[in-house]
Each structure stands twice: as structure tokens, then as C-alpha cells.
């Protein structure tokens, strides 16, 4: 998919090294494959709206940034909720398709690779009901 991952927390790079070497490397062969960044003090988290000053930590925020540096989407969760990596991948697949088609196609609710896209234009006005059914919003059973 050609996507670069960056993780970031208020921990120091020394803590990142210890966490990677002593725990994460036991989950992922060779250790974490992407840079683990340190935002001590939460300055970066503050401008991204995810730093909680009272708790002194950053929420589980995930930002999708396109090759032009534009934020295409984000999700912010409280600490106890894990992310859905499959949904992140689906969103990147949708964004990459939209970029490749230069906006001539859009991905309706429930889209994933293999499902129909919509072609926005004057003929589609008032006619989405012919092209897209509500059961397409859900995964096939």
C-alpha cells in the first residue's frame, strides 16, 4: 500500500527502546518496523488535539495524511479502547482509490475493495437509490 507508520507518545526514546526490545520484539519478529517518536511534554499532541493535560498522556489518536500533507481522516479513542486496524486499512484503500481516480469516483458507506463505487455527477443526483442499496452498508453475512 506504500504507507509509512509513525507512532508517538509522551515516553522518551529510551523508554521506546526498552519497550520495543523487551516486550514488543516478543510479539513482532525483529521488533517494531516503524519509527517510535517521543513527544515529551505533549507539545505535538496538543496541536493534534489529543494531549490530555490533566492525565499527562495522549489519547489514542490516528491521523491519515496523504502525500500532499493533507489530513484525510482521523479517529481519537480513549485509552482502554484498541484500534481496528482493518478499518484503517480500508480507509486508506478508499482514499488511495479516490486519489487515483482524481475524484471521479467516490466510495459509499460500507465500501471495501471489490464493492461498487459511485460516480458523482449530474446523472446521479436523486438517483443514488438505483445505484446503492442499504444492505451494501454492511458486510455480507
Amino acid at each position: 500500500m506504500g504507507v509509512e507508520v509513525l507512532s508517538i507518545s509522551i515516553d522518551s526514546m529510551f523508554t521506546h527502546k526498552m519497550w520495543n526490545d523487551h516486550e514488543l520484539a516478543k510479539m513482532v519478529k525483529g521488533g517494531v518496523p516503524f519509527p517510535m517518536l517521543s513527544d515529551a511534554g505533549g507539545k505535538i499532541g496538543t496541536i493534534y488535539g489529543v494531549y490530555d493535560e490533566e492525565a499527562g498522556v495522549e489519547a489514542r489518536g490516528r491521523f491519515l495524511i496523504d502525500p500532499d500533507g493533507i489530513v484525510q481522516g482521523y479517529e481519537v479513542l480513549t485509552p482502554p479502547i484498541g484500534r481496528n486496524v482493518n478499518e484503517t486499512i480500508r480507509q486508506i484503500q478508499a482514499l488511495q482509490l479516490i486519489r487515483e481516480k482524481e475524484g471521479t469516483e467516490a466510495t459509499p458507506s460500507g465500501w471495501k475493495p471489490g464493492k461498487a463505487t459511485l460516480k458523482p455527477g449530474i446523472d446521479l443526483v436523486g438517483n443514488v437509490w438505483k445505484e446503492w442499496k442499504t444492505d451494501q452498508a454492511f458486510d455480507e453475512k
Binding site: 500500500m1 506504500g2 504507507v3 509509512e4 507508520v5 509513525l6 507512532s7 508517538i8 507518545s9 509522551i10 515516553d11 526514546m13 529510551f14 523508554t15 521506546h16 527502546k17 526498552m18 519497550w19 520495543n20 521488533g31 517494531v32 518496523p33 516503524f34 519509527p35 517510535m36 517518536l37 517521543s38 513527544d39 499532541g45 493534534y48 489529543v50 492525565a55 498522556v57 495522549e58 489519547a59 489514542r60 489518536g61 490516528r62 491521523f63 491519515l64 495524511i65 496523504d66 502525500p67 500532499d68 500533507g69 485509552p79 484500534r83 484503517t88 486508506i92 482514499l95 488511495q96
Partner: peptide, 29 residues
């Protein structure tokens, strides 16, 4: 600053222009 594959590094977001990025904040190691 950060840690990547056995080395300490410095990263600037703008160094990644031209690539798709997933930037993930999390509460702590």
C-alpha cells in the same frame, strides 16, 4: 526524536511528503 530499529533518530513530518502516513498517538509504552 525517536527510536527505530536499534537507532535513535530525528523525524520531521515534512520529510514524509509524497508518502501516505498513518500517525498514531497512544497513551504510553
Amino acid at each position: 526524536p525517536g527510536y527505530h530499529k536499534g537507532e535513535f533518530i530525528n523525524v520531521k513530518l515534512s520529510d514524509y511528503l509524497g508518502k501516505w502516513i498513518v500517525l498514531c498517538f497512544y497513551p504510553g509504552d
